[in-house]
Write a protein that binds this DNA or RNA. Structure first.
Lengths: 165, 165
DNA sequence: CATAGATTGCTGCGTCGCGCAGTGATTTCT
DNA sequence: AGAAATCACTGCGCGACGCAGCAATCTATG
């Protein structure tokens, strides 16, 4: 019926409301899950988060990139890599192209311990995704991708704004 | 064409892969955004997170509920409420029904400062959601709701498992 | 080509959120 | 009524984090 998007549609506004509330709980649940994984492995939540980001990207990351992606300072990122290296999860390799940089590479055998936990979750996840249509899956992915990009610009906006205190 | 769900469909497997990778970045982005909001308001990320959870639910929460929802111990939750109370964001009210409990109620005028930041984000969010169909919005919300419930059971599983250390 | 400036990663230092363990008050179980 | 569980709270110590300063290296400008 409604082909064009009507922003004042009350039913649609209700959908926005529900999605907003649900995404808050969604993120809260993820934080708790991440915490549980960290406890299970004897790591810190930040470390698990960093490992997650480190394994998503195909090429190794520098310490600075890890700092930017996690939101820590370069100093804290150094200690984080220290912990991960001490635990045997990553290797430090000097960057051949720029000798200031240090490339952080995940150690597959060791990281497998972490991904094993995720994969177990992944199996149950499949049963969750299986009754979504392909179009729905694409819509979900697209929403996340765009929300991702949006939050980046919003963070910049917040940083440029004066603090209300 | 494919009416029933075929788990071995390679194109579908690729969709799962993309969604998995994107949701990792999605959560990372949220953590960064939450951090930026906290910096902006001079609060701690955990406090902002707690305020978010506190305002989603219509009725006030007890200290224990806050502890469970955020994953902290009751002791840390007490300090968290201390900080929020000192900042004027919440009020402590003894529960009339159970005098052991303390009800934590958000202070609307003060919390408005926080929600103002969210609402500004909300406006740009609308432009993002506006070009999703209602069915897509429902699919996204449904996915989050179910992922939420799933992670709860997965956390229980992790806690009952022996630690690999 | 030399030199100033920017960038990268690392290291003391102090701060502070957090978990742990114990306490008193209140409720629930037997 | 007494025992056991639950709730919120409080010292205490740990450790992750931000900050500031450091040397090494790359880049830009004359």
């Amino acid at each position: 019926m409604t082909d064009t998007t009507d922003t004042t549609d009350p039913r649609r506004a209700r959908l926005y409301e529900e999605l907003s509330a649900e995404s808050r709980r969604y993120h809260a649940a993820y934080v708790l899950f991440n915490q549980a994984v960290a406890d299970h492995l004897g790591l810190h939540p930040t470390d698990v988060q960093a490992l997650s980001l480190l394994t998503v990207e195909p090429e190794p990351l520098t310490v600075r990139q890890i700092a930017d992606l996690t939101g820590l300072t370069t100093g804290s990122a150094t200690r984080l890599v220290d912990r991960l290296e001490r635990g045997g999860y990553v290797d430090r390799t000097p960057d051949p192209g720029d000798r200031r940089r240090v490339l952080v590479t995940p150690v597959p055998e060791r990281v497998a311990r972490v991904t094993a936990v995720w994969d177990e979750l992944g199996r149950t996840w499949r049963t969750l995704l299986d009754d979504h249509s392909e179009d729905e899956l694409r819509a979900i992915t697209r929403h996340m991708r765009r929300a991702n990009a949006l939050s980046r610009t919003q963070i910049e906006r917040l940083r440029s704004l004066p603090k209300p205190d």
